[in-house]
Amino acid sequence: MLGLFRWQDLLDIVIISFVVYRLLLLLVDTRAMQLVKGIFVLGLLAAAARVFELQALSWLLGKSLTALFIAIPIVFQPELRRVLEELGRGQIWQRRQAQERAEQLADEVTRALVYLQGQKIGALLVLERTTGLKDVWRTAVRLDAEISQELVVSLFWPNNPLHDGAVIVNKERILAAACYLPLTENSNLSRWLGTRHRAALGVTEVSDAMSLIVSEERGEISLGIKGHLSRGLKEKQVRRLLLHYFLAREEQKGGLLEQLRRELRELWPGSGGKNEI
């Protein structure tokens, strides 16, 4: 049996598996993905019916699958057209989806922070990286929600029950709100910095997370990372920092920090940022 197996057969299997995998990625978060799951379940039932020689069930499932394959192009025309468009642009072979998703998340968070800055509403957003912050958010209000401008703004809106505390984000999800963070142990900070900034620095001293702070008194956005505070970030700068974060991969542990330092040097040449520490 193994003697009949050629290297071309192995290559054939690998190529088909890769194509099916990329097609499934294009269908993620669409209605068509639920259909694929349904067809898979029906296929398993049909196989089981044949093994146990359940002729009536096999006939019924066979007719159902035939009807589904006829109805799919009609019901899911928009999804199929989208897949073909992606194939036509060659996106199935590229990582454009990850880039577009990161840009979308960066835009959502940036717009939220800039809006809060314009309204002078205080906010503290913690971006979790490789070090888990479960000890911080397990006693807070769990959300596990998708990131959106409206949700971030509403969480920090005055008189909202969840506005007092930090919001923790992990890649593509908002994990929790109303989180209380450890305060920094650095005694050399400016006395003008309040509890929000001290908490933002405290969490970066006990983990590799970074924090974004909106000051309600000064109406400015600041970045906390590795126990250092950089103040006065502009909208473009915030977006680029967030884009680096959402694009960062686990294996590039030192890459994100270096990118942030480069960004801050561009904003404040020769200083690396207005560090309070």
Rank of each mutant, 00 (worst) to 15 (best):
V167E: 04
R142Y: 03
V141N: 09
T139D: 13
V152A: 03
K171T: 05
S190T: 14
N160G: 09
I174T: 02
A177D: 00
W157Y: 07
S148C: 01
V153P: 06
L143F: 07
A140Y: 04
P182M: 09
G165Q: 01
S148H: 05
P182V: 13
D144P: 01
R173W: 13
K171Q: 03
P161W: 02
A178N: 05
V153T: 15
C179E: 12
P161V: 03
L175E: 04
Q149G: 07
D144I: 06
L183V: 12
V169P: 03
A140K: 02
P158N: 01
P161H: 00
L193M: 10
T184H: 07
A178K: 05
I147F: 12
E150V: 08
Y180C: 08
S154H: 14
P161G: 10
L183K: 12
V169I: 15
T139R: 14
G194R: 08
Y180K: 12
N186G: 04
E185G: 15
V152I: 15
G165A: 07
R191G: 14
G194P: 11
P182E: 07
Q149S: 11
T139Y: 12
W192Q: 14
P182A: 10
I168L: 14
C179N: 15
N160A: 13
E172F: 05
R173L: 15
I174Y: 01
E185I: 12
A177M: 01
W192V: 13
E172P: 04
L162Y: 03
Y180A: 08
G165C: 07
I147L: 08
D164K: 13
D164R: 13
E185N: 11
L193N: 13
R142C: 02
G165F: 07
G165M: 02
I174E: 02
D144S: 10
R142G: 01
T195N: 12
T195W: 08
H163L: 07
T184P: 05
E150W: 06
A166H: 02
S148V: 01
A178H: 02
V152S: 03
R196L: 12
E150I: 07
S154R: 09
R138C: 08
L181A: 03
L155H: 02
A177C: 02
C179D: 12
V153W: 06
T184Q: 08
N188Q: 11
V141F: 13
I174V: 14
C179Y: 11
T195L: 13
D164S: 10
A145M: 15
L162A: 03
I168T: 05
S187R: 15
L175D: 00
R138W: 09
